[in-house]
Amino acid sequence: MLAVQAENLSKTYTGEGAPVTVFSGLSFELEEGVFAAIMGPSGVGKSTLLHLLGGIDRADSGRVEVFGESLEELSPRDRARFRNERIGFVFQFHHLLPEFTALENVAFPDRIAGLAPRDAERRAEALLARVGLAERGHHSARALSGGEQQRVAIARALARNPNLLLADEPTGNLDAAAAQTVFALLRELHAERRMTTILVTHNPELAQRCDRLFTMSREGITPSIRLPERG
């Protein structure tokens, strides 16, 4: 079954200057349970594609289906609920909220879903322990190292046990060792939770370790390359 199916997506940003067309007529699909990497030069729309697949942005034209649910047809409220229950995001700059502790950051998705604060924090503690940060839960997000912040961000993305994990250059801001740790963690969690994971990366070595590799350019996105099983 397809986890993600995008057809003829077009996206143009209209800011103060001239409109910028990021891509036009882009199609993309991915089966469930695959750990895929998307590579490509900056500015071709990799992050935009992730935002469209995650329903936090809308395409000018085309359609996106995630696990058979057409995102365009959902009301803003239902789309928010769908994101909360089925999609996890990891951003390049972790985007942890600095006013809150690591534990509170990880507990947010559960609290948004309406769980009691104690229950949400208990689940967050377990997730922090899983990413190796059990002792850092009560530290402010800004007091953590770059690698730790990204691990907290991964724990937060997994709080609702999503089916689809969208990771936008999660290692882009880390040193080589921290990048390896974060990537290894993502792979482990992907296998453990049987998710579908889409990883945008500029690191070819990491991309090679994924199940599939897509390459994006101005012309579009190349067909999937099925990478050999590692092991």
Partner: peptide, 16 residues
């Protein structure tokens, strides 16, 4: 603004 984006990505509704 960024926090709002993150909350929305985590599933917060516009009403929230």
């Amino acid at each position: 603004k960024r926090d709002l984006g993150v909350f929305t990505a985590m599933g917060a509704t516009p009403t929230s």
